[in-house]
Each structure stands twice: as C-alpha cells, then as structure tokens.
Design a protein around this nucleic acid. Structure first.
Lengths: 148, 148
DNA sequence: TTGTAACCTACTTATCCGATAGGATTAAAA
DNA sequence: TTTTAATCCTATCGGATAAGTAGGTTACAA
C-alpha cells in the first residue's frame, strides 16, 4: 500500500503544467527545477503523461507542455492511471485470478468496497481543484517570503 | 497500491478463528485446509497475528487458536498493522523524510487526506462485523449445497 | 517416549521500482 | 545550412521487497 514515485511526481508535474499563466507551454527543465526532480527521470514521467493523452507538446527547440483538455475534465484517477494499471488492491477482483469461493468470501467483499472508495476519491477530485489549491498555497508562500 | 498476500490471508485466517463455534481453539492445519493456504506459509502468518497480540494458543499437541479479546474490539486496521507498518501512502508524511515545501504542496495534502480516509475505513470495521458476514455467506452456501 | 502441533529462522527466487545513461529526432535560431 | 536546445526513446543497473519453501526445535498430550 504505497504510492509509487512516478505517480507522486507525475501529479506534481501536471499541476505545474496546469498552473502556468499564459499557457504558452512550460519546459521539462523548468518543472524539474521547480519540483527538484532530475530532468532525466522527469523525462520518463512526462512521456507517460503524454502517452495517456493528458498533455501535449511540440518537438524541437522552444517547445513546452500544455494540457490537452480543461483541467476540470481531468481527474486525479486519470493521472493515476497514466502510471498504474486500474486500481486492484487484490488480484481476485479479476475474473482471471478469481477463486470459486468469492461469493462466500467476506474479505473479498470488504476489500472490494475499499477499492471502490479509493477510486471514487480519486475520480471526484479534478486537476482544476488541485491547481487552485496549489496557487493559493504558493501565493501565500510568496507573500510570506516577502515579509521575511 | 496493492495489498500484500499476508494481510489478505491473515484477515481470512482470523475470521476463521473468530467464527469457530465452541471457541475451543482451531488448528493451523484446519485453517490451512479451509482456506487453501500452504500450512508452512500460514505458519508465518499466524505467528504475526500472535505477535500482534490478536490471537493466543497453547504449545504442544492438541493446541488451537483463539482471539485474545472480543471480535468487536478488533478492527481491520489492527489486523492490517499485524502485517504492515502504519499506512503511509507516501513517505513524506513522516517528518524524517519531509521536504521544506510541504506547507505549500497541494499534492501532499491530497494524498494525506486519502491516507486518512483509508485508515478510517479500516478502523471503522470490526472483526465482529466481518465474521457475521462470513457466517451469513457460508450459511447460504451450505444451504445451497444441500439442494444441489 | 512417541507423535503432533506450534514455534523459529534462514534461504531462494522472482519481480518490481527508482534512477541513471546514451543516444536519436525534431525544429528554432544563428 | 549548421548549430543548438529541446523532446523522445530504449536499455540497463542495483536495491529492495514479496511470496513461498524448507528444516529444524520446542512443548505437551496420549
């Protein structure tokens, strides 16, 4: 029960992309510096966000990433799925691995409900919400820095 | 984001222990057979339940396991913790691994809330509830079998 | 004193994860 | 047209962890 780093970094990266002002595109390098992630590692992370069709870019020099759709249409679960297969806390949710006892298995039902609850949580939050939070928090931070 | 097999098997095993009729103690062997788990593997699992002080037994021949307290006083999270360290979806919940940006990190807050929600879910369900479910389900199963 | 069950510890194997590395491709800029 | 700076793509390495196996020791009832 751990979140892998790619998902963690990936969410932070896409928030950075969503939070840019003029929407002209933001560079890998910039994100890496802001987030303190190695450029090379972020490289892979961003390519997975792209493969999931959540962000887009132009090739070559002077490029930069943007969202492919409105932040309100992207859920955290969408982002999660860019780095993981659909959430299955246990394998026997899947018919392929299921055992004959499932209809009589209290544990199975219990974990299944938890699984659903986690997915619901991630689906019910949009990137827009997190980006707003992010802006609020960093704004406060800037003001704070000003007075120090 | 996977539940490990020990937690999965462990829950099933302790339900079996809680569900026994006369409370005279149930043998590893019996649990292993009912649940279809290798005796040797279950051996380790049960020893972890015991180390967590959830079940007790006598040594030697003619032994058998019981709960150390009432099933209503044991939460699923107690059982979870017999096989895992306290749930931390990401390391930086911990002050030891925390970074300076946490107060301004929207992602951190988000995962933290999910983490709490999962713990709440596991804490709010008692072994008693699951055992009742189990009995209901297996009862139906037996009746069903009778008519086949 | 013998058989059975719990108890304890070590080991093997496989898989996944985080991270690094090197180079290919593309397009803007010089 | 050449250079430069960025994305893009693939391979690989080391470490950690997990699942399961195995062997032997201890305790107790018959």
């Amino acid at each position: 029960m751990k979140l892998n780093t790619k998902t963690r970094y990936g969410l932070r990266a896409i928030i950075e992309i969503a939070a840019q002002e003029n929407n002209k595109g933001i560079l890998q390098k910039t994100i890496a510096e802001t987030q303190g992630i190695s450029v090379k590692y972020l490289d892979q992370i961003i390519s997975q966000l792209k493969a999931a069709n959540l962000i887009s870019t132009k090739d070559g020099k002077k490029s930069g990433y943007q969202l492919t759709k409105n932040a309100s249409e992207i859920s955290v679960y969408d982002i999660y799925k860019a780095f993981n297969s659909p959430l299955k806390l246990i394998d026997c949710f899947d018919s392929e691995y299921s055992c004959a006892k499932i209809p009589y298995c209290a544990s199975h039902n219990y974990w299944y409900k938890l699984n659903k609850q986690i997915i619901d949580y991630m689906e019910s939050t949009s990137l827009e919400t997190l980006t707003k939070d992010h802006k609020k928090l960093t704004k406060n931070n800037d003001e704070l820095m000003f007075y120090i």
